[in-house]
Design a protein around this nucleic acid. Sequence first.
RNA 1: GGGCCCGUGGCCAAGUUGGUUACGGCAUCGGCCCUCUAAGCCGAGGAUCCAGGGUUCGAAUCCCUGCGGGCCCGCCA
Length: 624
Amino acid sequence: MTEPVLNPWEQFRQQVVRALHEISGKDLGGFLGRPAKPEHGDLGCTAAFSLAKEQRGNPAEIAKELAKIDTSRFSLIQKVVAQGPYVNFYISIKPYRQLVIDTLQRLGEQYGRSETFQGIRAVVEYPAVNPNNPWHIGHARNAVLGDTMARVLGMVGYDVTRMDYINDLGLQIAVVYWGLKHLAKEPLKGKYDQALGRIYVEAHQKHDKAQVERYLQLMEKGTNEVAKEVRAMSERCLRAHHKTAARLDVQHDLLVWESDIAHSGLFAEALDKILESPNIKRLTEGEKAGCLIVDLSAYEEFRQLKDTEKILIRSNGVATYTGKDVAFHFWKFGIIKDPFLYRQFRRKRGENQTLWTTTQKGKPGRFTPANVIFNVIGMPQSFPQRTVYLVLETLGYTDASEGYYHLAYEFVTLPGKRFSGRRGTWIGFSTDAVVREATRRARREVKARNPNESPKFYRQVAESIGAAAVRYSLLKVAVEKQITFRWNEMLNFDGNAAPYLMYTHARASSILRKQSAPKTANLDVLSTSHEIEIVKLIGRFPDIILGIVEGMQREKWGTRIELFKLAEYAYKLSVAFNSFYNHCPVLKAESKDLIAARLLLVDACSQVLRNALTLLGIHPLERI
RNA sequence: GGGCCCGUGGCCAAGUUGGUUACGGCAUCGGCCCUCUAAGCCGAGGAUCCAGGGUUCGAAUCCCUGCGGGCCCGCCA
């Protein structure tokens, strides 16, 4: 019995690898790449260059030898051609087309999935915005990356928990609470996080240090009126954050609060574990007398520092940020048992869509430890992030250290300045403001194009398009590129942008509305380059998704993810469809056979586009 | 002092384990709506790949030296 096919392109690639192995006796898979030009075939092999070097031969001669593959034994290889030193493989379109369509029809909305990482538990954490101001557009980049990452991981088999960590015990929270008490005029106007953010800017300048310090102590202590009010304030802010998240269809499963960590006993338990390690030291003399430290001088990049000793617990017994983070990750990985109580924060539409939160009064047991964790955190935090997982390693938790991924991305900035909560540079560039403006512009367009629709239609469609435009703008750029925020680019609706993708899907839907697609058809009549291009792109979809996850490279200062490849794919498929749309009539094709086959192709393309858009967090609409 | 990321047509930007003619978008110019949604399609122009050296049959990609932009290196949070 053969496994049911999930990934058509991989079937072809494997046949090429087998064919090359048979003719050369070597695994030449590493030399395969996709040629830049279609006339060079579907897969090219550059092995002849290095074989020539080894054998002191001529690359072109060697390529010619490699190309003497008997293709009749490989169903998906149509021909092999040596073009100079390159060995180019051409796909056998007839069986491949059938394989692609069969696979897609069998899997439907599941098409694209793979089982490679089945059964592995993953936690993705994002965006961890402090609950004292709203998300600015840079926070949206974090959130959208995390949310999309979670969707992609789910597609390749991971069991994913989408987590948000909320630091409701920091100085900035005490400051905004001070502002609320001393500056704010009740009732606050507008969205709560926006109002808090403005108060914070003012409070940052005006606050009384001693009073703020007093609040901070009470917050950390827990059982008192101030702590209760601060938690209520933070939760209210979080609800406002999650309204923003909902606009962008950014989802979470679990909120973890710093104040719950502080009062859960998690740290005491982690400390016991930390003390078991032979590599933890309590210093008795010098500047750091009384501190618990880990010496990181074994790592080359730390030796350059003035100080290779990383403090986990201060001389006053309080944990440092690194110390807290190490303890928190003990929990994520199940090194210590789960000390939290949980309750529902919000019930969502679907059954399994409940958003849970840690709490002081609730029930235990809502969390299963992870095998791998992905923290979506800015590139500038590379150093502290690396410190955390190197400390884990030094303490003896190598599995946890290796399963710790810092998904690093560069910030969104304004021309010439950074976003700052304190200075209030985010005002006017909150995620809400940007999405609102995108929606406003979308609504104008939608109304012009659909003059006789209801206000409800305009609103719903415009909201989807506006949010999608913002999401896509943030996703289509490689994570290591800084984004300078410009309205015209963020809200571009033409070309490589979300509205184009949605428009493409709506066009396909429009055809299928007029005549539904048959389940089977004679696919041999699909012979134009436009039709074949679509089939080939559809066949690559599962491989694109898997490639994003497998291509993740954990480097010293962060792991890069190539989520933009998903955006790029959706765009390419759309380009191919629109080209087809303009060159190949469907409903008015010249024969019944051709109409049926093209309808089936439109249906197939639309399904894959829908799958891709859903992964991108874009709602595929039938009409826009 | 040490370290990280980025530099590709006017603007944005893919390609950076070396490999077939540097992928696209915006903007500009020309063409296409009696035919399935023109947020579209077809075509044109536009690139010393930051600079200079080096390695190689072959460099946007690797190495060296600079330049420009952004950032990191606390018992802080």
